[in-house]
Every structure is written in C-alpha cells, then in structure tokens.
Amino acid sequence: MTASSPTTPLLAIRGLRAAYGKIEALKGVDLEVGAGEIVALIGANGAGKSTLMMTVFGRPRARAGRIEYDGQDITGVPTHEIARLRIAQSPEGRRIFPRMSVAENLQMGADATDSSDADRASGLERIFTLFPRLKERMTQRGGTLSGGEQQMLAIGRALMSRPRLLMLDEPSLGLAPLIARQIFDAIRTLNRQDGLTVLIVEQNANHALKLAHRGYVMVNGLITLSGTGSELLQRPEIRAAYLEGGRRG
C-alpha cells in the first residue's frame, strides 16, 4: 500500500482551533486522513492529541477552522449525531461500562446507529474472530475484565456501529507489551481486510508509526511534522524526543 496523500480525504481538518476556557489546546491544526489509511498522531502529554479527537466529536467545540468528513462539513454537528455518520471513537482510558455485561457493552455500540439484527450478528462475528477472548467473557461484567480485555471491548464496542472511520485514543495505554501488540495486530487486520480507516493517537510512537501509513507529530497544539510512518521513524528529532528519550531518562 502506498502512503501518498489521497486526493479525497475521508477526514480533513483545516485550521482547527479549540480551547478549554482560556487555555488554547489546538492552535490551528491541519490534518488529513485518506480512506483506507491508518494515520498515527503522536506527541507528548498535553500536546492536544486527545483534544483533537474530542473536537472532531464536538466536545470541546471548534472555535475556528473546519472539520470535513467525506466531503461534508461536520464542524457544528452535535456530539451524538457524529456517531451516526459512521465515525466511531474508542476514548482515552477505555471507558467501558463496568457494571454492564460484555454483551450489553457491545450492544450499546450498535444501539445508536439503528443497525439491523443481521448487522449486529455479523458485527459480533467479526469482533469475535478478532478478539476470541471477548466471546468467552460475554456474560461477565465489563469491570471484571483485565485491562487488555477492556481495551478489546472498547474497540469492539466502537466497531459495533460499523464505522468507516475509527478513532482510537491511546489503545496501548497501561497494557503489557504482548497485549499491546495483539491490539495493534487487530487494528492492522481491520485495516487490511475490512478497509477500515483508522486515526490512532498514541504515546507509544514506535508501535504507532510502524503500524501507520502516515503520521503526524503534534507539539503544543500544532502539527510540527508529518510524513510516512517509516520516514518519521527515521527522523533524528523523533527518535530523540519519542523513542530514545525515554530510554535515556
């Protein structure tokens, strides 16, 4: 798969600004995600990565700029209607429903998008082939799952709405390396076999850039670098800031 920027991006963000009160979190972000691409957004804590994802979902509201999805302006669309446009989000910290069963958690993903029973069944089938462990846990409560299983559930729940664009916020957060790799493998499978477009926000730059076709680096609410995943991995400033920096410290 080539990593060139496609002509009609599925998600196009232009000059996006957003703020929490007086603190400006996004200071004019430009970003594109082409259909069928995996795009990684990396950056340090507080760079505005999660805010960018949340702003696409309308919370916080964009102060300036445009968010286009499939050629349509969705900047002012209310949060709950975004999911009906087949954009799914797995928010930071997984945020599954702890007292509801795994089956109910998955059903919640399908509820808002008026999916038929057949869609639901095929969606479940897909999720079970990706994450067989969820099938064993169907009747268990979400809160009793391990961290890795909860992440699988959060992704599964997002997939139940049959999205075209899946936005993942730090899917490897707090997971053992082996489990994190399983999650990344599943994302790769989804992209290759189902043609799912993925925007992934990660601190784990190494993993994310290896997985992604293209990547963006965000610093203090601005995109400072972009390029293909392998290009970015080779850049000395990336290596220093996000890859080797951790090792030295």
Partner: peptide, 16 residues
C-alpha cells in the same frame, strides 16, 4: 444504565 456508568463514553457512542 450506560449513562449511569459513563457519560463520556455514551456521547462517543452517539447517545443523546
């Protein structure tokens, strides 16, 4: 019930 558990997740799933 989902609202009781997690409001942010509800919004992300398209619940009004």
């Amino acid at each position: 019930e989902a609202l009781r558990e997690d409001e942010v997740a509800c919004r992300a799933l398209g619940i009004n």
